[in-house]
């Protein structure tokens, strides 16, 4: 076997029949097997030496050449500019982006938990049903868990929820449940990769507290509110 053939074998460039023939030869020839081992080790060493570079975050100056606001993509774990750029909604968006960039993309379309109606984000599908029906005191085995229900200062019933798709806060109006807050990918504890967005529930609770008039509903009040169709008298 020539050196050409050895490296072609190591690089996976031999056809199946040639490769088989090569392996036969290797079984009978310890020196050949050793040469293959050396070349394979060399390939591995060179490849693994440079491999970590592709895993590094891309320097902002490079990403910015392609897209001035691209750090959402270039720095998946550190959406820094969003935080710097402005106040609280940048922070919310950043948390959301972190969740999404880590691999979760919310489904869209009629089956998605959130959708847009007349310029407002509305809960829909299973999420809307859970907000309509479920009681915190009697959790259903659905995709969403209801947290706190309360009356907001602008006189609406509002409820926090969490699920695999995310955690959020919705308030009831004539159109249904309008989402005031939604942080993607924070609901499930076992999703280790999304754990960093685990402060999502805290973020949602904080928002709820800020909106709350008085105390959260107790179990009785929650049930009465549901039975009234979430309409305040």
């Amino acid at each position: 076997m020539t050196e050409d053939q050895i490296i072609a074998y190591v690089d996976g460039e031999l056809g199946p029949i040639e490769a088989l023939r090569f392996e036969r030869a290797m079984e009978a020839d310890a020196a050949l097997a050793a040469a293959v081992g050396r070349h394979r080790a060399l390939r591995d060493r060179v490849a693994s030496h440079f491999a970590p570079i592709a895993a590094e975050p891309v320097p902002a100056r490079l990403a910015a050449m392609v897209d001035p606001s691209s750090n959402v993509v270039a720095f998946p774990a550190r959406p820094r500019r969003w935080f710097d750029a402005g106040g609280r909604y940048a922070a919310i968006a950043a948390t959301l982006v972190a969740g999404l960039v880590l691999g979760q993309v919310l489904p869209r379309g009629p089956a998605a938990p959130i959708g847009e109606r007349n310029g407002a984000i509305m809960a829909q599908g299973g999420l809307a049903a859970a907000l309509d029906r479920d009681l915190a005191a009697a959790p259903e085995n659905g995709a969403y868990r209801i947290g706190v229900s309360f009356v907001s200062r602008d006189r609406r019933y509002c409820r926090t929820f969490s699920g695999n798709a995310g955690a959020g806060l919705g308030c009831h109006g004539p159109e249904g449940w309008a989402l005031v807050r939604f942080v993607a990918g924070s609901g499930s504890e076992e999703q280790g990769a999304y754990r960093q967005a685990g402060s999502a529930s805290a973020d949602v609770l904080e928002a709820a507290q800020a909106m709350m008039a008085g105390d959260p509903l107790d179990a009785d009040a929650e049930r009465r509110a549901r039975d009234s169709g979430w309409r305040l008298r």
Binding site: S69, Y89, V97, L100, A120, V180, F182
Partner: peptide, 26 residues
């Protein structure tokens, strides 16, 4: 906050929702 360009449609869409809801910002 001069520009909010986001590279990903999905992400951008959802952020747009959030911003509208929270601040009425488009």
């Amino acid at each position: 906050m001069s520009s909010h360009r986001v590279a990903w449609d999905e992400t951008g869409e959802i952020i747009r929702f959030i911003l509208k809801a929270v601040d009425g910002t488009e």
